[in-house]
Nucleic acid binder design. Structure first.
Lengths: 161, 161
DNA sequence: TCCAATTAGTATGCAACACATACTATTCGT
DNA sequence: ACGAATAGTATGTGTTGCATACTAATTGGA
């Protein structure tokens, strides 16, 4: 017996059922579950691309520019659901690292067209391999039809007004 | 006609199908959809409790302490999937606002037992009403069985190793 | 055609989190 | 009894989100 004099096992002072999870109430909330699931996947993502030094957002921006070369910052912001200021910060960082370039649009001189540099394309190619494995790890928890429902459910949640 | 000389409608320089969403590739990723859904629900949560000045995490900590009076910081951190340093910052903030108190545990003097103050209990009571409406807005998108599957799916994602 | 409203980018500042590291006090395990 | 582990704390860095404000450019309507 290692405990000195008390039989208490944890830090619940009085008569609480310690077999009951501490978060029992919170588990009943969709928002809580969504946050925990997202946090887990986010952590795993960061770990998966740790050697590339990319965050989810940064990777998403590279991905978006690669699919839409010349996209303007504001279009990227809208597409990814971010505001202009946040997008600026992310694009600045990627710009400093030489992963993309800004080029003033000739059609609308307010706009900066975004393009990946060769370095950016190379990094993205590496990221794609890591992300594929990362995704597989999570999507493999489900059948194809379950996944289809899950995707649609998440889209619905995003679009709630 | 307001456009000067070009027929271009957006910022896609050459022959891209503009009916195709810019994020088409990204939409194929579970992590991306999860992040967007979580961001939407997070924003809605913040708006729902804006007058109470609470974040999701802060509300979760209050909730957890209310359900488990005397819980130690480290237990709260574990339960909510946060590290000690982050938990410290959150508890500090709630402490400064007079919503909770720390009390040194007599059983283990390393531990600080956390308790809600009357002010904390009152605030939490208000928050509960707001959160109930907030949750309803999102859960009402689904049937009971769909919701059951969704909850379980999110739990699976959280527990992926 | 001219002017007000809007838009894109930028700059600055603040708050919240996550995480790393390091240190002290305390308790645990052998 | 003593080394290992634990809880709390302090400090610092990086990322993100958002508000505000400003400039330059474009648009739309009178």
């Amino acid at each position: 017996m290692s405990r000195s004099s008390k039989a208490k096992v944890d830090d619940l002072p009085e008569g609480l059922d310690e077999s009951m999870p501490l978060t029992e109430e919170l588990e009943g909330f969709l928002g809580y579950r969504l946050r925990r699931a997202n946090a887990a996947m986010h952590r795993h993502f960061i770990a998966a691309v740790a050697d590339l030094g990319l965050t989810q957002k940064q990777a998403a921006v590279l991905w978006l520019i690669n699919s839409n070369p010349g996209i303007a910052q504001v279009s990227a912001a809208d597409a990814l659901g971010m505001d202009r200021a946040t997008t600026m910060a992310i694009v600045d960082r990627l710009d400093e690292r030489g992963l993309l370039v800004r080029r003033q649009s000739s059609a609308d001189r307010r706009r900066q067209e975004l393009y990946l540099t060769p370095a950016g394309q190379k990094l993205l190619r590496k990221a794609k391999a890591r992300v594929a494995k990362h995704e597989e790890r999570f999507t493999s928890q489900f059948t194809a039809s379950e996944l289809e429902f899950l995707f649609e459910a998440l889209r619905k949640l995003r679009d709630v007004t």
